[in-house]
């Protein structure tokens, strides 16, 4: 228990950083109703872009902005594949993900791993100073929640929500649903890249594979947040906050099961299964309800 408690700050910091990623996933998965797999590549793009730029002497803040924009560009590519090429969203995301694999290697100069020492550069956060890491990532998360709360309260934000909720209705009310999907994908991937840029600083390196399976972690954070806090967190800002808490809880649980002796390589399987089960629950509930009402109808007849 003692070791567990003392090991908490690390997962909390990591959880907040992945919570930012999860808020990006929230935009596509929950608001637009699109499963966007681009993010597995974008996370790495954000990380390597930041490391290479900072190692090249750029100011960290500026490098983060550029990492964010690189993520936006990746989202735009998926958006174009989806809306202009008519490719199903999942496949469009996979295609961009593959493109990003090559792009990320280009950015690193074909190295699979690029280091970024906190001793040499003025990074915003690092695992060497966990309380600062938690503070900085929490500030980022708070700012992002505030901006997203504002954006999705605007006319444009509402039209994005309508696009995800009912495309027929959206178009009948003059909303360009294709454009909106692109805007959503751009913003989502921008956030994911930003999260990657924070993660690279936190761990002191960026890795070509740092985003592998990211979508699963993002979904896990969103779903854990909804399951545990959905009943109390109704407001949109609180729903986003729930995703961040979901990320924290995810990392705390991971730390716990690792300390209990689980093989780290089995983690991905465990995460994927947990997400599969939680995605299945609402479906099973619906089936059960239908079967029940079906029985009632037949009972009446």
């Amino acid at each position: 228990m003692q070791t567990f408690l003392s090991s908490l700050p690390g997962p909390i910091a990591q959880g907040i950083i992945w919570g930012i990623m999860a808020m990006g996933v929230y935009i596509t998965f929950r608001i637009l109703d699109i499963a966007d797999l681009t993010v597995d590549g974008t996370m790495g793009t954000g990380g390597v872009t930041l490391v290479v730029l900072v190692a090249g002497g750029m100011n960290v803040g500026l490098a983060m902005l550029i990492a964010f924009l690189a993520g936006c560009a990746a989202g735009l590519v998926t958006g174009i594949f989806h809306t202009k090429f008519g490719i199903p969203a999942i496949l469009a995301g996979i295609l961009t993900q593959l493109i990003l694999y090559s792009v990320n290697l280009r950015i690193t100069g074909q190295r699979s791993n690029v280091p970024l020492s906190v001793d040499k550069y003025a990074l915003m956060l690092s695992l060497r100073n966990l309380s600062r890491a938690i503070l900085v990532s929490a500030l980022f998360a708070a700012a992002i929640i505030a901006i997203m709360y504002w954006f999705f309260g605007t006319e444009l934000g509402h039209s994005l929500r309508a696009t995800g909720c009912n495309q027929n209705m959206a178009r009948a009310n003059g909303i360009n649903t294709d454009n909106n999907k692109m805007i959503g994908l751009v913003l989502s991937n921008g956030l994911v890249a930003l999260s990657g840029a924070l993660l690279a600083q936190y761990q002191g390196f960026a890795d070509i594979n740092m985003g592998r399976g990211a979508i699963v972690i993002g979904l896990a954070a969103v779903i854990i947040g909804e399951v545990l806090l959905g009943k109390v967190f109704k407001n949109f800002a609180l729903k986003l906050l729930a995703a961040v808490f979901g990320g924290i809880i995810y990392y705390i649980v991971i730390t716990l099961v690792l300390q209990m002796g689980l093989n780290a390589n089995d983690l991905k399987m465990l995460s994927a299964l947990v997400v599969a089960v939680f995605l299945g629950i609402p479906y099973w509930q619906k089936k059960l309800r239908e079967r029940k009402s079906n029985k009632e109808v037949r009972g009446d007849a």
């Binding site: 309260g153 605007t154 006319e155 444009l156 934000g157 509402h158 039209s159 003059g174 909303i175």
Partner: peptide, 9 residues
């Protein structure tokens, strides 16, 4: 039929 911008909805 209106432009949808960044004004409060």
């Amino acid at each position: 039929g209106q432009r949808r911008g960044l004004k409060w909805a």
